[in-house]
């Protein structure tokens, strides 16, 4: 059983990781796909703008990268803090 202070540090590191990842998650979907689309209007791609691409395809690709990156990062954190299974 991991001691209390190391599991607290582990949880803090995890929360920080989640925060960073959620910012990327938000910006690439709600941001580029919806709220910031007008700002990206100048960047054309195949008959439309980059915002449309993010809304219909780009965000999904970002989501994929995020999940695997999170899994890898957490596997590392698990070991560093000695809380792995």
């Amino acid at each position: 059983m991991a001691d209390k202070s190391s599991s607290n540090a582990y949880w803090k590191a995890n929360i920080k990781t989640i925060q960073v990842f959620l910012v990327i998650w938000f910006v690439c979907s709600f941001g580029f796909g919806i709220l910031l689309r007008p700002m990206l209007a100048g960047i054309g791609i195949g008959g439309t703008d980059l915002g449309f691409w993010f809304a219909q395809q780009g965000s999904i690709l970002v989501f994929l990268v995020l999940i695997f990156a999170y899994a890898a990062r957490m596997n590392k954190l698990d070991k560093e803090h000695g809380v792995e299974e």
Partner: peptide
């Protein structure tokens, strides 16, 4: 058209939440 992009982002983006939260 574009308005319905919510289906694409919504039904995939939830997996990020599932995996992390």
């Amino acid at each position: 058209g574009y308005d319905t992009s919510a289906y694409l982002m919504g039904w995939t983006g939830g997996y990020v939440l599932l995996a992390m939260l």
